[in-house]
Every structure is written in C-alpha cells, then in structure tokens.
Design a protein around this nucleic acid. Structure first.
Lengths: 135, 135
DNA sequence: TTAAGACATACGCTTAAACGTATATGCAAA
DNA sequence: TTTGCATATACGTTTAAGCGTATGTCTTAA
C-alpha cells in the first residue's frame, strides 16, 4: 500500500486490509479473540523479539483495529470493533475464520498454557494474567 | 507482506488481504460486481495506462480472487469466489461494502456510461459490451 | 506473411514495509 | 534519585510493491 493520510471522513479500506495482510498481525488478533492480552504474552507465544511485536501492535492501532490500555509498566491490547459497520462485519468474519485455523488454535492453546502455568517462564514471571485464555 | 509460497493445503490469508490492500484493485473488484468486464473498460474507467491495470489484475488472479477468460484479442475478468468459505464470506461483505462507497458508485456509473454510449471513446470502439453494467 | 491491435510481462527506478539491534521513555521499587 | 523492568520508538539494512516505459505474445484482418 502506498502512504496516504487516514482521512477522518471516509474509512481507509487500504490501511484496514494492509493491517490484515501480515501473518504476525493475524496471530496477534487471534490471541486477542476473547480478552485483552498483555504485550509480554504476545512476545512469549509468538516467540520473537519485543520490538517486532510492539511495531505490529502499533500498526494495528493506527489502522483502528486494536486499542491499548496502560496499567503501570504493563500494556494490554484488545480488539476494537471499527465504527464502520462493514469493517466491523469483516473483522468479525475474520475472527471466526481464525478460530478454524490449526496454527491459530495452537497459538491460543499456547497462550492458555503460558498464562495458567503454575510456574510461568522466567521471562514473564509476575505478568498480569488475562481472565480468559480461550473461547 | 513478505513473499511466501502459496501453499495448496491452507488458504493464504496474507496474500488474500494483501490483494485487497490497494485502491486500484478495490476499484477493479468494484467494477466486476455484476458481470465480467473487458480489460479495455478498466483502462478507460480507472483512467490509467494499460500495463498498470494488467498488473493489478494479475495480482488478483494470483490471489485467487478473479478469473480471466480469453475471447480472441479480448480478455474478460470476473470475480471468482474462493473455495474457502471464510474468504468467500469476507469477499461478499466487501462487495456490499464497495456498493455503499461514493467513489465506487461513481466508477460503476462511469462504466455504464462508457459501455452504453452510442459513440464510445475512440480508445475502446468495437470493444465487447458487458451484458450488465450496474446492479 | 505482414500489419495492427489487445493484453501481458520485462526492466529499472522509487518508496516503504519488515526486520534486528540499539536506545529512549515511563513506571516502580529500593 | 537511582536502578530495573516493560514497552515504544529510532536507525540502518534488506526486500518487495508499485510505477511508467518498453517490449513480447497472441490473434485477427489484410
């Protein structure tokens, strides 16, 4: 996609679909299906460096697909339904789509494991647990 | 999107959404809403050079969203519903979405004008007319 | 068989997306 | 206030998307 200002008047379809055209971002959305998720869990489950996750989350934020909540040193991200009804419909369809994908299912199981483990990995010890890990 | 082989087994979501993340390609899809359309009409309505149109149509073809039909020197493109039910659902939603967009509506009106004009522009004289220009 | 037209692709360029690494920011405990 | 940690952003590099122009391919008509 070529750069273009995100006009307030009309929803930017290009930006919306560009945000969805990346496997890491789809995995992030998948992990946020049922609840907000702390950034550190994304890093743990996706298994990559933290700046990469942060950048992709920023991309989703700028596209109006997710919202962030700060809680002290922790940042929690959640899916935010676009006001545009058509975009919202597509996003809901995508959520259902992701639920049927084997790799995405694995990711959600992995999130549940990491969150509910009695002895979490050292890298995320003390991280805030999401209320619900899976649907 | 980074390059990745389009695995036959699982639908390539990245490629699918990347194909939708471009305004020219969305305009092309919009013009194919009701019927197959000859390439020369795309060039006329979009108002750009022919190789650009051809390249974007090739992109849509590779993403499995459109199909081409050769008829002598003419090439006709039409929307092809993906076999993947989720992709098909999203694509149908997008078609409805495009119908509500002012700019896209203008494009379809323009297509109708060009196709039904008693004296078509010189550049497309003799071009095969689509059966239906608008919904 | 040549010529002309419609369409596809090759080529070189510009721009931006995505990456890893380094660093800045902001909060919290000591 | 200093230290440590979670997160965000800056920076430089690599890769590929998108573009205009040029050229190739295929078909039809002369």
């Amino acid at each position: 996609m070529r750069s273009e200002k995100n006009n307030e008047k009309s929803f930017n379809m290009e930006l919306f679909f560009a945000a969805l055209a990346d496997n890491t971002r789809l995995r992030l959305l998948n992990l946020m299906q049922d609840t907000e998720v702390c950034v550190c869990y994304f890093v743990e489950v996706i298994g990559t460096n933290q700046p990469k996750i942060s950048r992709h989350l920023a991309y989703l934020r700028k596209a109006g697909i997710v919202a962030a909540r700060r809680d002290g040193i922790w940042a929690h991200y959640r899916i935010m339904m676009p006001k545009n009804e058509h975009a919202a419909r597509v996003l809901r369809d995508i959520q259902e789509w992701l639920k049927t994908d084997k790799v995405m299912q694995k990711d959600r199981i992995q999130l549940a494991k990491v969150c509910c483990a009695p002895q979490p990995p050292v890298s995320i010890q003390g991280a805030p647990r999401p209320q619900i890990a899976m649907g």
